[in-house]
Design a protein around this nucleic acid. Sequence first.
DNA 1: TGTACATCAGTGAACGCGCGTTCACTGATGTAC
DNA 2: TGTACATCAGTGAACGCGCGTTCACTGATGTAC
Lengths: 218, 218
Amino acid sequence: MAGVREQNRAETTARILAAARAEVAEHGADMSMRAVARRVGLVSSAVYRYFPTREALLTAMVVESYGRLDRALASADDADLPGGERWAVLGRATRAWAKDRTHEFQLIYGTPLPGYAAPPETVPAAAAVASHFLRVGAGSPVEGFGGVTLEGQLAGLVDEGLAASASGAAAVLAELAALVGFVTLELGGHLVGTADPAEPLFEALLARQARTLGLDGG
Amino acid sequence: MAGVREQNRAETTARILAAARAEVAEHGADMSMRAVARRVGLVSSAVYRYFPTREALLTAMVVESYGRLDRALASADDADLPGGERWAVLGRATRAWAKDRTHEFQLIYGTPLPGYAAPPETVPAAAAVASHFLRVGAGSPVEGFGGVTLEGQLAGLVDEGLAASASGAAAVLAELAALVGFVTLELGGHLVGTADPAEPLFEALLARQARTLGLDGG
DNA sequence: TGTACATCAGTGAACGCGCGTTCACTGATGTAC
DNA sequence: TGTACATCAGTGAACGCGCGTTCACTGATGTAC
């Protein structure tokens, strides 16, 4: 009734997840079951008592990584800041997280792993990350991001209260893409010969985004 | 003196490269020497007469893929178009190429392959791609992308005649990141529940970029 | 022009590795009476 | 409270696979005299 078995199970599951995270951090998103097992100190087949396939473990990792980025954003966010600076803080937190946990960032935003398609259960975790940016940036309409199709596609976000404006939401999605793209290029070494170090260009990007989103107190 | 050997060698090298390209296209950037050999109809060890390691073949693939994107851009570009539309054409060509050749796009702009670091010889090929965008977008200064550090980092591009303005070059780099990020998110399925299909958001992004870069005939 | 030697493309076997997953098993924990 | 049975975590061996790379080899092409 103390549920020793249950407790052990929870602990071992946590140890496996931690090992998988370390494995991804050190060796990249193409994590192997055997490497994880080795790290936990289990025989490889034992891991299958907890995760029925590699895919299941990967999915758990993806959800966990979104969660960690979500928490990093939550703890960086500061509702008292003026809009532009608040957006910049989120952007900097994303970049810092990505540089600190390169492979986790690539696990969620990088090249899809061969033979792995992120299942539906990862969607809410991904949405939680985006919601931070929507909350800050999608407060008012943004010119040039309207149009019936776009408004229709993003009406859901407004209905769910995730965005106050559809065109604002559209603009935020585009700016999220810009952030992901910047970090992707930086991590891939594509800025090495030019904007190197990349901070000044990143700061200019953040300022431009604040202007685009109408967050610069105009 | 007809150089039968020499000619055969060139032909086989081309066949290997074509096979490697097909292999990457169908099975992703984590290409294997044995799969390429099978495709060419050679025994796996024979490939080593042409490329001393997998890394060398990958490097050739990377250079080739940059070259193909470069050519796609060159043939899409049209100097007679007004600035904003000309930029949009380049953006659309990039997205179309990426959707058509997903794995090649990911080979050059996606998650770095484990154990593979793109060597210096890929740099000029990458620069050729960027130059199309710089030519169109970096003609005049862009407010908010100046500053001594940034201007210093990008002075080289101006000196080489690749950009007419350092702040314009900075803005173009940031917008290139936005394009890469957009396509990365789209290919990764991150826009599926929201901006789906993605064309309207992409068009809004292109229009916003034209405005940011001062290409909208203002 | 013909012969002797050097070069090189391609073969096939092998080395040593790591992988995902299955399976029959042992021994400990939990449950029903 | 004690006993009989069911559940389950972890083991160790195995299957069948694909990989990058090396090596001694054969036979064809090229070169020097």
